[in-house]
């Protein structure tokens, strides 16, 4: 029983991490049709910024997380303004440009801080464990879940209650119609990129807590599973991404533990293939 609880908590923590990456990816894709290959790199930027602030900068953990998120958001906005915006008329080239950034940014991080994993300082309050139903679960799992839940609620509120949320939702449904109604969708594009970058870099800063270290290829490794989550959840759907990321995280953890290591990662991919064969439009029935 205690093993099941521990695995479930770890799986949910991992799922929370996937959600932080996938929610932004999903929104960006839903609104702009851009598959952002640089999203993993943004996560790494957030992770390294937080790590730098916590070690060299000497700030406390929470301030470091905030710093990492701010830096990641700025990088994301810069990416949208400098690279994506001039390529609006060439959709495939937008994807290719993000591929280039996704290659270059981790390489730059590797050049500055080396390819080895750097230990991430763990604050005393979060390095302990709690007893839950007979299992001892590390506290950082719950931090991740809380962060993902907060992002989910905030995103739902933003999409449902604000004017820009309305524009984003309308843009996901039919971008041409929103433009035809005289609304400048470009500002929504930048906004969505900022939100996605913020969520991903927050995920990066917390990934340092979850894995105990940061390394340049962490983001790219997570990105692949985030893609799986986005396809499963239906592109452009935040709730779909939440459901799919929980499923993927749990399946991965349980399969990795109860079968051979690595089979969990494989089973996620098989799950995706089966789902696409049965429901080619993803869980929520949106476009794929």
């Amino acid at each position: 029983m205690s093993t099941v609880v521990l695995l479930a908590c770890t799986g949910l923590g991992l799922g929370a991490l996937y959600f932080l990456v996938a929610s932004g990816l999903s929104l960006i894709f839903g609104l702009m049709d851009v598959l952002n290959f640089a999203h993993g790199a943004l996560l790494s930027v957030g992770a390294y910024a937080a790590w730098w602030a916590a070690t060299d900068g000497g700030t406390g953990f929470w301030l470091a997380v905030v710093f990492g998120t701010v830096v990641g958001t700025a990088a994301s906005v810069l990416l949208e303004l400098a690279l994506i915006r001039p390529l609006y008329v060439r959709p495939r080239d937008q994807i290719l440009a993000t591929v280039g950034v996704g290659l270059a940014l981790p390489a730059l991080l590797m050049g500055v801080w080396g390819s080895d994993a750097r230990p991430f300082p763990q604050p005393a309050a979060l390095s302990g464990t709690v007893g839950l139903l007979g299992a001892t679960v590390p506290v950082n799992r719950f931090v991740l879940m809380a962060a993902a839940l907060a992002v989910l609620v905030a995103l739902r509120l933003f999409l449902a209650r604000t004017r820009y949320g309305l524009i984003v939702r309308a843009g996901v449904e039919d971008r041409a119609m929103v433009t035809a109604l005289g609304i400048d969708v470009r500002r929504a594009f930048t906004l969505v990129f900022a939100i996605g970058g913020a969520a991903a870099s927050l995920g990066g800063a917390l990934a340092g807590l979850y894995f105990g270290s940061v390394n340049p290829s962490q983001g790219t490794g997570l990105l692949i599973f985030a893609f799986v989550v986005v396809v499963m959840g239906g592109m452009g759907s935040v709730t779909g991404a939440a459901v799919a990321s929980v499923g993927v995280g749990l399946v991965q953890q349980f399969a990795n533990y109860y079968t051979a290591a690595g089979l969990g990662d494989l089973s996620v991919v098989v799950l995706l293939a089966v789902l696409l064969l049965v429901k080619p439009r993803g869980l929520t029935g949106r476009l794929a």
């Binding site: 001039p86 290659l103 270059a104 940014l105 390489a107 050049g111």
Partner: peptide, 20 residues
């Protein structure tokens, strides 16, 4: 030195430049 010592950084940047 740091950017020049990373072939992937140079190639990634070159790629973006070509696309752009």
């Amino acid at each position: 030195r740091v950017p020049l010592s990373q072939p992937l950084f140079l190639l990634g940047t070159l790629f973006v430049a070509v696309v752009y």
